[in-house]
Design a protein around this nucleic acid. Structure first.
Length: 493
RNA sequence: GGCGCGUUAUCCAAGAGGCUAGGAGCCGGUCUGCAAAACCGUUAACGUCGGUUCGAAUCCGACACGCGCCUCCA
């Protein structure tokens, strides 16, 4: 059992060896709080949520940092549009972010610092960079001189000359090199500011992550994560700042999640093709969204569509139904049975026993392989199928049957605790899915119930013409009838 | 233009030299008055052209197509 992670820095899957045995330090770039989060954010934080959960599951003592960027051009612009201050805007969207994360069962990080609480740390790093001639003051701004850092662009594998050739950045006379980036921005009238050795101003975007990660995790730490779009320039600049200031390696493993696409195009604010988490959760259950995201590997692009979410929901229903069925067996008082301890399981039972025994090693193997959640789900489904097959042929809830059912149930739940799935009571979740859909139809549950009573009457008097009429009528309205020995229930199609 | 990634059956999606991934669907079965639902079973694939190898979805090369980054982005 050995965890391997794909490191953007080397372009390879590497054995994960933490700086301090048994511990893991992890920093993930948080959001800039100027608007509601979209599905792309959901993916990033769900991806790192399972990485965090799995590291803990694997026995590491994890310190996880996820920041809020609460000072930035966009926040200021938004505040100006609303004739309010930046703090009001930032606090509102921090709250919104927290709500969204909670609904998606994304665990709180160990620390969730705000950039504005780390201004002094930011200033210290900038001073160190200036002292070492890696940064220079220019008209109240401070810039990082990229040419002074030979390793610049080692993460994204580019070189400065080519970047300049294709650059779309405007050359400002304040900068010595057009790739130089701001560490500190002198404040313009009406902007929030903090005092600094270079006059009143505010930090540039990249420096805050260097300051916050260092404050909580030290000069060198294990894992730094974020979306693929942060590789350049954000993470590249973080490396330049931190390694130049500290004179040592910044991060050992760089992990980047893939994008959420809409029709094979990146979902982004600038393209305008995004859905907020809140919008999507009006239509789909949070676990369905999580399941959908985990059904692909975290580094691959994933295409967001209603159809794909629908499929995720049916798949999740399959697992929840199996858990519900296992619960039913476990809840039933075992009949006084004559079978002694020497009883043997059916053939299907032995197969399920085998699946159960292999479950944990296979799950760990999948997750050890760069957090392969899609494969982990496959293992769960194989177990579900074996369990269903076993339950279908089960005659009596003997002690060994109950043990088997309990084992399978707890193994699936254990995997669920790492994946952040199956948090609900199966019966309640399944019912919730049904009632959520009921909001989308134009017939009241009372009317449906009435028709079901009429149909049941027709059926018992063998008036199948009328009973089928009712069934078709309801089907037209999107209501599917479910006949069983216990009576008729309904479902929204 | 530079750099990087991808192309797996009808669709979604793992796998990375020989070992049934998985889900949805199709088809068949169990159940049912008949259906539906549920469950069981079954099916099929590795972009193109070359190369390496006893053996290639998997490694190497070329090509085609798609996407991303190079500006704020998760």
């Amino acid at each position: 059992m050995a965890l391997r992670v794909y490191n953007t820095l080397t372009g390879e899957k590497e054995l994960f060896i933490p700086l301090t045995p048994g511990k893991a330090g992890m920093y993930v770039c948080g959001v800039t709080v100027y608007d509601y989060c979209h599905i792309g954010h959901a993916r990033a934080y769900i991806s790192f949520d399972i990485i965090y959960r799995y590291l803990k599951y694997a026995g590491y003592d994890v310190t996880y940092i996820r920041n809020y960027t609460d000072i930035d051009d966009k926040i200021i612009r938004r505040a100006n549009e609303e004739s309010t201050d930046y703090r009001t805007v930032a606090d509102r969207y921090i709250r919104a972010f927290d709500e969204d994360m909670e609904r998606l069962s994304i665990k709180k990080a160990t620390f969730e610092p705000k950039a504005t609480d780390h201004i002094s740390g930011i200033i210290e790093i900038i001073e160190a960079l200036i002292a070492k001639d890696h940064a220079y003051v220019s008209e109240g701004d401070v810039y990082y001189a990229v040419e002074t850092f030979p390793d610049y662009l080692k993460l994204s594998g580019r070189n400065l000359e080519e970047m300049q050739a294709g650059a779309r950045v405007e050359v400002g006379d304040k900068k010595r090199h057009l790739m130089d980036f701001a560490l500190w921005k002198g404040s313009k009238p009406g902007e929030p500011w903090w005092t600094s050795p270079w006059g009143n101003g505010r930090p540039g975007w990249h420096i805050e992550c260097s300051a916050m990660s260092m404050a909580f995790l030290g000069k060198t730490f294990d894992i730094h994560g974020g979306g693929k779009d942060l590789v350049f320039p954000h993470h590249e600049n973080e490396i330049a700042q931190s390694e130049a200031a500290n004179g040592c390696q910044f991060v050992r493993y760089w992990l980047h999640n893939g994008f959420v696409n809409i029709n094979a195009e990146k979902m982004s604010k600038s393209l305008g093709n995004f859905f907020t988490i809140r919008e999507v959760l009006k239509k789909f259950d949070p676990e369905t969204l999580r399941f959908f995201i985990l059904s692909a590997h975290y580094r691959s692009p994933i295409d967001f569509s209603d159809q794909n979410l629908d499929e995720a929901q049916s798949a999740l229903e399959r697992i929840y139904s199996c858990l519900a069925a296992l619960n039913e067996v476990l809840a039933a008082t075992p009949a006084a049975n004559p079978t002694g301890p020497g009883e043997t399981l059916s053939h299907a039972g032995q197969e399920l026993r085998e699946k159960a025994d292999q479950f944990r090693p296979r799950f760990v193997e999948a997750m050890d392989d760069d957090f392969n959640s899609a494969q982990a789900l496959g293992i769960i489904f194989e177990t579900v199928r074996a369990a269903n097959r076993f339950l279908a042929g089960m005659k009596q809830a003997t002690p060994s049957v109950l043990t088997l059912c309990a084992d399978v149930h707890s193994l699936i739940a254990e995997a669920g605790s790492v994946l952040g799935l199956f948090n609900d009571i199966p019966e309640r979740w399944l019912k919730g899915i049904k009632t959520a859909k009921a909001g989308q139809i134009d017939i009241s549950p009372d009317e449906i119930e009435q028709l079901i009573v009429e149909r049941t009457g027709a059926r018992s008097s063998k008036n199948f013409k009328r009973s089928d009429e009712i069934r078709d009528l309801l089907l037209e309205k999107g209501i599917q009838l479910l006949d069983s020995a216990q009576g008729t229930t309904w479902n929204v199609k």
